[in-house]
């Protein structure tokens, strides 16, 4: 089993003792097949128990360990040491306040997610005794990819608009709203529109596509945002040019 010494440069910040963030160097004896998270765990266990970061599943489904690795938003559990040479710089996710070290404050995202009503608002009520709604594989496919969002928030760290305009609802929350809008069982699009079609909703997006590039689940938030824009534009024309169609 091949071993390798890896130099990590990790952002440290402790609000009780530090006036500003700083970097700390660790030389870590790693196995070649490790991911960056393994290296951080090794630091925590053998070199520095005071380092704080979030992690749990180590299989890219829980979304805890999003961080900037050499300037790119990534999951630490899926960033392989074999893909890096030289010093690896690890920082908390960009565009979020730092709570401590690599731990960010995610209140803003949690509030926005709630605002877009990311739950099924049934088009037609159905009693449990009536069994499941029918939904064909083709209907499932229309929204399935948008269900894969694990709320890791890499897309917010990558999004230039979110960096400039923090009120922007952002890629993940809009994708999840779109996920329900696209669901054949759902009738809640109108209720979601006031949030996602508002000024700080989808129209802030300038379509750089950075969100889709960093998404570890290939949710393709950029596609969701563009689909929402098109649908919202159609809404506008229908409302203004054919007002008699309005419900």
């Amino acid at each position: 089993m091949s071993e390798r010494r890896v130099e990590l440069e990790v952002l440290r910040y402790h609000p009780e003792t530090d006036a500003a963030p700083r970097f700390q160097r660790y030389s870590v004896d790693c196995r070649e097949e490790w991911v960056v998270l393994d290296a951080l765990n090794h630091v925590k266990e053998t070199l520095d128990p005071t380092l704080s970061y979030r992690w749990s599943c180590h299989m890219a489904v829980c979304g805890s360990c999003g961080m900037m690795i050499n300037g790119e938003p990534r999951l630490a559990c899926k960033s392989f040491l074999r893909d890096y040479q030289g010093v690896i710089r690890v920082e908390p996710l960009a565009h979020f306040p730092i709570e401590r070290d690599l731990v960010t404050v995610i209140d803003d995202f949690m509030a926005k997610l709630k605002r877009v009503k990311p739950y099924l608002i049934p088009a037609q009520a159905r009693a449990l005794e009536q069994g499941e709604y029918r939904q064909t594989p083709a209907e499932l496919k229309r929204y399935k990819q948008f269900t894969l969002c694990m709320n890791c928030m890499l897309c917010y760290a990558a999004c230039p608009e979110y960096g400039l305009i923090p009120k922007f609802i952002g890629p993940a929350a809009i994708s999840l709203a779109h996920r329900y809008n696209q669901d054949s069982r759902d009738g809640g699009r109108a209720a979601r529109q006031e949030e996602i079609a508002a000024a700080e909703g989808v129209w802030e997006c300038s379509f750089t596509g950075a969100c889709s590039e960093v998404c570890p689940e290939h949710v393709d938030p950029a596609a969701a945002l563009q689909q929402v824009k098109i649908k919202s534009t159609v809404d506008w024309y229908l409302a203004h040019l054919m007002p008699w169609l309005k419900k």
Partner: peptide, 22 residues
């Protein structure tokens, strides 16, 4: 079965048969 149908009613993306049943 009641609980799994309940999840379906809340939007869980269960895989489907061609006829749309779970």
């Amino acid at each position: 079965p009641r609980e799994l149908v309940q999840l379906e009613h809340w939007g869980c993306p269960w895989n489907r048969e061609p006829d749309g049943s779970v």
